[in-house]
Each structure stands twice: as C-alpha cells, then as structure tokens.
Simulated assay, not measured.
Amino acid sequence: MKFNVRSRGDHTSNVLTQRIKTYLEEFDLIYDEQEPDIVISIGGDGTLLEAFHQYKHRLALTSFVGIHTGHLGFYADWQPDEVEKLVIHIAKTPFKIVEYPLLEVVIRHTNDQETERYLALNECTVKSMEGSLVMDVEIKGESFETFRGDGLCMSTPSGSTAYNKALGGAILHPSLASIQLSEMASINNRVYRTIGSPIVLPEHHTCLLKPKSEGDFQVTIDHLTLVQKKVQSIQCRVAEEKVRFARFRSFPFWKRVRESFITE
C-alpha cells in the first residue's frame, strides 16, 4: 500500500510526520506523494482540507485519516499519543471506507472565459467585492428569490458545523446527500424579501445564483479565495464524487458534535 503524510508545519506535527513515515516504511509500506492509497493528515481540519484539494483528482482511489495536534476536529479524530496504534491499524488492518458527499460549484462567465468547476469538502461562499450582494436564486430551474445582503454560503453536511453553523444553519449528518444554503445578513423589509432561513436541497436539486448586475465577486471554496469577474452564474449541487475516509474504529458524528460544542 502506498501512503503520504501531510503536516500542518508546526514542530509537533513535523515530528509526528517523520515518526509515522519511518514506522510505515518499516512495515514495508511505500511512501508516494503522487498516487497514495491513503493520506495521513497531521494538524487539524484545515490540514485535511488542504490534503483533500491536493488529491481531489483521485478521490475514488485515495482515502484520508486525520491526527489532530490542536483542538479536536471533525475530520482529524486521532490523537498524537495514538500514533503507534494507528500505524499498526494502517499496516495490518483492512480499514472501513466511509464516504461523505461533496459540493460541486460550476462558475460560468459572460465572456469567452472557460467554465470553472470546483469541489468543496466544507462550503462555498459568495460575496460582492463592493456593496451588497444581489443575486437571483433559482432552485431546480425555477425562480425562488432575489437575495440582497452580505453574502450566501452553500455547505455540505460535513461542513455544516463550520461557517454554516455560525450563520445559524442546521447541523446535518454526513450520511445525507444534500447541500444547505444559508444567508449572511439578508435585507428584509417591505421592498426586499428573502426566505430568511437556511434551506436544504437534496442531491437531485440544483441551485443557480445569477448576479443582478455586473461586478466582481469573492468566491471561497473551502480555504481557497477566488476573485471572479464577468460572472454569468454560479451553479451548486451535490457532486457525483465523494470523499473517502479510512475508519479503523467507531467515532459517531453526533459524538464529535457534542465534544466540539457542548462537552467542557
């Protein structure tokens, strides 16, 4: 089996990275940065997001597992003092694959610029570079509303505990193939009106965002920030691809939620 190890870059993470690499090579596993079967992320959820985007072109072939060297994460659920146990599992135990849904974002332009397609593990956000964001929102090909406000956030179920939660969105279990649209400070009065609450779309529904006027937009795909010009539409839906996590033990999603937000 081929593996790669991604470090957050701090001293503790770098030391663990070298230990894991040495241990796994002693078990005759092959270190391969290009085509790994499994990627061990050491740091936090941000490190795993970076690893996901590095290997998004081979999601059907690569699985991820995370060791957190900071606070407990939703993707990094092993602790540093469990490194030896994890290494033995990777080397000796056939692991279970758990798949989570992803968000597909397709950005089309009004000029001859090529259509861009992105995958997000957590979320995509859209904001105007100047003033309020004004977007027509279509769901499944039908006009739904015209949004005016600070911005919009489209999240995956596994990403629903991140920016989406801060916006008042619901926490969704990752087994639900869906996406969630949440508003950022929408303008609601006698003239302008939006639904005013997050909405959850199933995998066979598409959400299309169309700018009401020309302008530049700030679009984020997880930790990546893009400036988009001449935008015709931003299309969001559940992606056909899924992210694969290597599970060697049970760690229920709601336990993660409780330990992250409730347990002291």
Rank of each mutant, 00 (worst) to 15 (best):
E138D: 11
Q34L: 08
F3I: 05
A91W: 01
N164T: 02
T156W: 06
N189E: 06
L29G: 04
E183H: 11
L181N: 08
L176Y: 01
Y100S: 00
I107R: 02
F245Y: 06
K212E: 07
Y23M: 10
R190Q: 09
H11L: 06
L72M: 13
L102C: 13
D10C: 08
R256W: 02
E214H: 09
E264S: 14
E35L: 05
H223T: 15
M184P: 04
K165Y: 08
K21F: 01
E104S: 09
S260M: 12
T12L: 08
S128D: 06
S233L: 05
L181E: 07
E35G: 00
K212R: 15
E82Y: 01
V219S: 01
G44R: 08
T161L: 07
C153E: 09
K140S: 15
Q54E: 15
T206P: 03
T125W: 00
T110H: 05
H71F: 05
S186L: 01
Y55K: 06
K127M: 12
K92H: 06
S132M: 08
C207T: 14
Y163T: 08
L172D: 08
R247A: 15
G196H: 12
S250Y: 00
A120D: 03
H223A: 14
R249A: 13
L29S: 00
D77C: 02
E241L: 02
R8E: 14
E142C: 04
E82P: 02
L224H: 15
L152W: 06
Q18W: 03
S13D: 04
F251M: 07
R244Y: 05
L176N: 10
Q18V: 11
Q218F: 02
I30G: 01
S158N: 13
A120I: 10
T115P: 01
L119M: 02
V137F: 02
V39L: 08
V65M: 04
P198T: 13
P36W: 13
A239W: 04
H71V: 04
V83F: 10
G149I: 05
V126P: 03
K229E: 13
V191S: 03
P80F: 04
S132W: 02
V231C: 04
L172C: 13
H53R: 12
W254L: 14
V227E: 13
V106G: 01
D28M: 07
L86C: 03
H109Y: 15
V105D: 03
T62W: 02
F261E: 08
G159Q: 11
G196T: 09
I97H: 02
H71Q: 12
D150R: 03
R148I: 12
G169I: 06
V257P: 01
E26I: 00
I30V: 14
K96N: 10
E35Q: 09
E214R: 15
K21T: 08
L61F: 12
S186C: 06
V257R: 01
C207S: 05
R193L: 05
I90T: 09
V126K: 09
E241P: 00
D28F: 13
S250G: 00
R256H: 06
G169C: 04
F95L: 02
F217R: 09
R108V: 00
A51L: 11
F144V: 00
M154Y: 02
A51T: 11
Y31G: 01
I187L: 14
L59R: 07
N111G: 03
R249E: 14
I234R: 00
V39W: 07
T194A: 09
S158F: 12
I262V: 15
S160G: 11
L208C: 10
L121M: 12
E104I: 03
